[in-house]
Simulated scan of single mutants.
Amino acid sequence: MSVITEHSTITCPECGHQSTDEMPTNACQWFYDCKGCGAVLKPKAGDCCVYCSYGDVKCPPIQEGRACCG
Rank of each mutant, 00 (worst) to 15 (best):
G46P: 07
K42H: 14
G38N: 12
T20L: 02
P60K: 13
P60F: 14
D33K: 15
R66N: 13
V50L: 13
C15F: 04
D21V: 15
Q63D: 10
M1Q: 10
C28N: 09
G16F: 07
Y54T: 14
C49Y: 07
S2C: 02
H7P: 00
L41D: 04
F31W: 11
T9L: 02
G70S: 12
C59V: 14
C28I: 05
C34L: 06
S8P: 04
F31I: 13
M23C: 00
A39I: 08
K35Q: 14
G46E: 04
A27V: 00
S53G: 11
A27H: 00
A67E: 15
P61L: 10
D21E: 14
S53F: 12
A27N: 00
T9V: 03
S53T: 14
P24C: 05
E6V: 03
A45R: 05
T20M: 03
C52T: 04
D33P: 02
C59L: 13
S8F: 02
E6T: 10
Y51G: 08
W30Q: 11
C69I: 02
H17W: 12
G38I: 05
E64H: 08
E6G: 01
Y51S: 10
Y51C: 07
C68Q: 06
C28H: 04
V40C: 10
E14V: 15
A67W: 09
